[in-house]
């Protein structure tokens, strides 16, 4: 059989139609915040940069120190890593400066959970903590690519490397204690609690001192919302918090994937396309 241009275009149209038709039916909605969701409110205007949270995090999670100086004098991580789940970074511009805490945001609709092919990353239904299970993980590191905040880190030095990230000290939460960072914070810059309450608190602070803050609660809507929310005097982009759309990236990617694979559509279409090309080439060879 030899297909002409007309026939080829027809095949494409049918395939494309088959793919696009159910796309509306598969449009995914952002996941909603659980009423019992727990999170943190980090107020950069209250942070004094003492790094007590960094020490406390390492202590309660049994993480080794990380050196960045030749003499190995300090536990001085340059950012999140396999041995650092929580770090305080400094932004400086002219005479102004601000600290910012880098750690897992515990997204309401996490991209890492969506990207994980084996459910090693799960979102706890009640508290909303994004939990990692090393026993399930296959080490594909899709979560690292998927995370819009660049949070999950891999143990590159280990032959059986695991993913390391903040789990909101869920081992302490189980005992009724607060996460290490918020217990250690001497100024109350890291406040632990229910996300709804924290959002109320954040808005109350914005209202009480409008001049002191950049007029936004970061994490209320960004990327579908996060359970770790931020207040700052400076624009959040300067503190390394990306300007994300209100729709989570999990919604975008899952809509595309679930649409194209609906009824095994994409594989069948691709197989048909390649079969056609292969057959055409075969015919061409015979004629010659």
């Amino acid at each position: 059989m030899r297909m002409n241009r007309r026939g080829f275009l027809q095949t494409l149209a049918i395939g494309g139609g088959a793919l696009s038709a159910p796309s509306f039916a598969n449009a995914r909605q952002d996941k909603a915040l659980s009423p019992g969701a727990l999170g943190l409110l980090y107020d950069a205007t209250k942070c004094v940069g003492c790094q007590a949270c960094v020490i406390a995090c390492k202590e309660v999670n049994g993480m080794p120190p990380e050196f960045s100086d030749p003499d190995h004098l300090w536990d001085a991580p340059l950012g999140l890593s396999a041995s650092t789940r929580n770090v305080i970074a400094l932004y400086k511009e002219g005479g102004r400066h601000s600290f910012v805490r880098q750690s897992c945001m515990h997204c309401v609709d996490p991209a890492c959970v969506s990207a994980c092919p084996v459910k090693a990353l799960t979102k706890e239904p009640k508290t909303g903590v994004v939990h990692y299970d090393a026993g399930t993980c296959i080490g594909c590191r899709y979560c690292m690519v998927a995370c819009p905040f660049n949070v999950p880190k891999f143990e590159w030095g280990s032959a059986y490397g695991k993913i390391v990230k903040c789990q909101l000290c869920d081992h302490l939460l189980a005992k009724g204690e607060k996460p290490g960072c918020s217990s250690a914070c001497p100024t109350g810059a890291i406040q632990f609690g229910g996300v709804q309450k924290l959002l109320q608190e954040a808005h109350a602070r914005l209202k009480a001192a409008p001049g002191a803050y950049y007029p936004k609660v970061y994490g209320e809507k960004e990327g579908g919302g996060t359970q770790v929310i931020f207040l700052s005097a400076l624009p959040f982009e300067k503190l390394g918090l990306p300007d994300l759309p209100d729709v989570s990236s999990a919604t975008l990617s899952e809509t595309i994937m679930h649409t194209t694979y609906k009824g095994f559509g994409m594989p069948i279409f691709l197989f048909a396309l390649f079969a056609f090309i292969a057959r055409r080439n075969l015919q061409k060879g015979k004629e010659e």
């Binding site: 940069g49 790094q51 960094v54 020490i55 120190p65 050196f67 100086d69 004098l73 300090w74 536990d75 001085a76 991580p77 340059l78 950012g79 770090v87 305080i88 970074a89 400094l90 932004y91 400086k92 600290f99 910012v100 300067k238 503190l239 390394g240």
Partner: peptide, 13 residues
């Protein structure tokens, strides 16, 4: 006991 120094990483390190 290792503790952090009195300086910080930059936001974009």
């Amino acid at each position: 006991r290792f503790t952090p120094p009195a300086f910080y990483p930059h936001v974009f390190e």
